[in-house]
Design a protein around this nucleic acid. Structure first.
Lengths: 337, 337
DNA sequence: CTGAAAGCGCTTACAG
DNA sequence: CTGAAAGCGCTTACAG
């Protein structure tokens, strides 16, 4: 049914309580200069009438509207969601509400979404990209903007993204710590900065620990299971001595593990496997369960929201902040006792 | 930098164009009774000044606010997203914007989110559940409400959900059509109506085609790969003659396929496998790729949005609509030539 | 075709 | 401590 119930205004509450709208407003907003018995009476009236302040009117009066816009190009992907949850978390869900829009990778649509959002007088904008590669800046807007996941090309904008060098470093460091010295790195798409950064981080970790040659091969493909399967076979055909696979995604890692099973190679005894993403349905259910580097996307979302709030309160900061990863150790590198 | 650019009002546009605010409003809103040269002048001024109508003020004036609220309990899951995309799609993204809120399974938080949404005068509310089991009704609200995925207990509410009986029916029908007569149904959690409904649908399909005994065993567990693996071994140990697995989720199906490989059983030659969800990263990358029943969640979202719009324009409808599934045939039932 | 006026629901100085 | 007034930015009858 959902028949439309009447909406009551401040004026009606005021009338019901026998005071002016001004007094009712102050009473309800917890202003100090109101007689406590008056306040009680107004509150009671509001309760009885089921009053819900109209935040459009409130927003009109100036100040904040208590809304922010999140524009993504990756709603179908797995990155936007954790980021959004982090944003909501930091915002304190029911105080500030989030408009979520998907531009579907279309620049024009992004433009018109942003205009719509601005027309609604959002207090800030978070733009979530689908790759970590830098994106075009939107330039100056009437509200604070934060670029998340995909940083802005313009260093004077505010960006928060994943520290993929760190991610690669942690994965490689873990393998080296376990004594692995013949590591094959199965990377993702060569054109993605995420792939290149992780490769660089892995190399760094080996270098700084004095095991420069530990990464014996690096192969680029895509981010899929199928690529992981194929790559594992190729690598082992070429070099049966490999003792670890550092995979640039959990999907790749699943494919690698699959091929290893097929060849009768024991994980992690003979060969250790590390993934990236900590995409739980895949990582936890792998056999053995998958050691992986979590990207901490919720944290990234929380930081983005904080940046908006800081900018709103006048703090002028800029540049790109990179969130480090977190190694999640499971059975594919350290066997369960 | 995102320095705050000035926001210009209708009054400023009007002044710039040398007309009254009333005329400017009409000109910009495409009202017929405006001299075309006046309109052109106003539009030019708006352009020059970068005018963006304040939709808060517009919303105040009455009519619609052009926003709707989506409250979910499943942001981390895989159901809410496709539904949301369908909603946005039907709404025509930049005309009507969507507040997305996650109640995180907390009833109190849901209450307060709804109050927040109502305070923002959303034109409608869509409540997305995480299971298909009926949920408590919110009762009467000042705006139209649609329950999606989890229907409302109250039959006078408006609900849109998955037709799980149909889903089970399609999966079983496909296997029977392929000549399979010893089907093991690996279901999900027995307490979920989605599991029970699919089991019922599968039985129906067999019955109506005269193959009553085709489902030789039904087992309940959870929705995971691990359960699929274990169940496949159990089933084949007990009855090596099984020629098909009907799995209540793609994850279960992946586990089943895994065990089948392990036992040297050929898929689909010896045993066919069907899943449910069409969760692409899993289904497409399975080996062989997985035949599955797509839940058409985007379609569900589109319908939910339409229901809101219908209710908004006064159509009074109620009850629960069930969206049928779609069989996606891949290699796990029909081998590639 | 154009504009002055009133009003949408609130909040904020400003008097009393 | 309370209330009348003005104003936020728009739109909509209503005159002219």
């Amino acid at each position: 049914m959902n028949a439309t119930d009447p909406i009551v205004s401040l004026a009606q509450v005021a009338a019901h309580a026998g005071v002016s709208a001004a007094t009712a407003s102050k009473a309800l907003n917890g202003r100090p200069d109101v007689n406590e018995s008056t306040r009680a009476r107004v509150e009671e009236s509001a309760r009885v009438l089921g009053y819900l302040p109209n935040s459009l009117a409130r927003g009109l009066t100036g100040a904040r509207t208590g809304t922010i816009g999140v524009v993504t190009t990756d709603l179908d992907g797995r990155f936007a969601l954790p980021i959004l949850m982090g944003v909501e978390d930091a915002l304190g869900t029911d105080r500030i509400l989030t408009f979520l829009c998907d531009a579907r990778g279309d620049g024009l649509r992004e433009q018109s979404l942003i205009a719509s959002l601005l027309a609604r007088r959002v207090d800030g904008l978070i733009l979530v990209g689908k790759q970590t590669d830098p994106r075009r800046s939107l330039g100056r807007l009437p509200v604070p903007v934060v670029y998340a996941y995909a940083e802005s090309e313009d260093p004077t904008d505010v960006s928060v993204t994943v520290d993929n060098v760190d991610v690669g470093r942690r994965a490689a460091q873990h393998l080296v710590d376990l004594g692995r010295r013949r590591i094959a790195h199965i990377s993702g798409e060569a054109s993605h900065s995420a792939a290149a950064d992780r490769v660089r981080g892995a190399a760094e970790a080996c270098a700084t620990t004095g095991h420069d040659g530990a990464i014996v091969s690096v192969r680029y493909g895509d981010w899929s299971e199928g690529w992981g399967r194929a790559a594992a076979h190729d690598v082992l055909d070429a070099d049966p001595g490999v003792d670890a696979f550092l995979c640039a995604s959990d999907q790749i890692a699943r494919g690698v593990i699959d091929s290893l099973h097929e060849r009768g190679v024991s994980v992690p005894k003979d060969v250790a496997v590390v993934g990236v993403d900590n995409w739980e349905p895949l990582a936890v259910n792998a056999r053995p369960s998958l050691t992986t580097v979590d990207l901490r996307l919720e944290q990234l979302g929380r930081i983005a929201a904080h940046r908006i709030q800081q900018a709103t309160s006048g703090e002028t900061l800029h540049g790109v902040q990179r969130v480090s990863g977190e190694l999640i150790i499971r059975d594919s590198t350290v066997p369960r006792r």
